Simulated assay, not measured.
Amino acid sequence: MARRIVKKIGKKMKKSMAKKWVKDYQKANPKAELNGYLYGKDILETLCNYPGSEGIWIFKGLNDEKKECLVLFPADADGNILDRKMKSLGAAVSELRDGDDDDPANNGDPCPPKCPGGFG
């Protein structure tokens, strides 16, 4: 099996198809507490500019209030989570330690209540 190039994972799609997929999900899950999150350019660029970053892992998590959230980590060319403090770049999420500039990201604006027109 050929090795995937992490920085090339994902692709653009037609706007009409993207809107359809979101609407289909919302119809199938009318009681869903959240439909999406908004993250700013600054935090995304910070993760993308992390030394060795070729992508971003996005995991579902539960915050301290036990509400669903997303947690973002920079990933290396092999898809491993990056953390300068770890000896192994492939270390498990449970081994991440708190620090300064290389912490994971969260705190996106949830939808609802902060939804773009037609997506709430």
Score class of each variant (00 low, 15 high):
K20V: 00
K67W: 08
L47G: 04
M1K: 12
K14M: 13
M17Y: 13
M1T: 11
K66M: 10
D42M: 13
N49M: 09
E45Y: 15
D101Q: 09
A92I: 09
K14Q: 14
P112E: 07
N29R: 10
R4I: 12
C69K: 06
Y25W: 11
K31G: 12
K20D: 02
K20H: 01
K11W: 05
I9E: 08
N49H: 11
G118I: 04
V93P: 07
D109E: 13
G10A: 04
S16C: 01
V93F: 12
Y37Q: 02
M13R: 06
G52I: 02
G40A: 08
G40D: 11
E33W: 12
D103T: 06
Y25R: 05
N107G: 11
A91F: 11
P30F: 03
N35I: 05
G36M: 02
K85Q: 07
L62R: 08
K8H: 13
D78L: 04
A91N: 12
G108C: 07
A2D: 11
D98A: 11
P116C: 08
P74R: 01
N29H: 15
K8A: 13
K85R: 09
K20S: 02
N106V: 07
W57E: 06
I56N: 00
S88Q: 10
W57R: 07
I56H: 00
I56V: 08
Y25K: 09
C69D: 09
K14G: 15
G117P: 11
G118W: 02
E33K: 14
F119M: 15
L82A: 05
W57D: 06
F119V: 11
N106W: 09
L70D: 04
S16L: 05
L96H: 12
E45A: 14
N29G: 07
F119E: 14
D42W: 15
L96C: 11
K31E: 15
R3Y: 09
K27L: 10
A105S: 09
E65A: 06
E54G: 02
P30H: 03
R3D: 13
P74I: 01
E45W: 13
C69Q: 09
G118A: 02
L38R: 14
K12Q: 14
G90M: 01
K85D: 09
D102F: 09
L34P: 06
T46W: 04
N107S: 14
E95G: 03
A2I: 06
N63P: 02
D100Y: 13
C111V: 07
P30E: 06
K15Q: 15
D103H: 01
G55K: 00
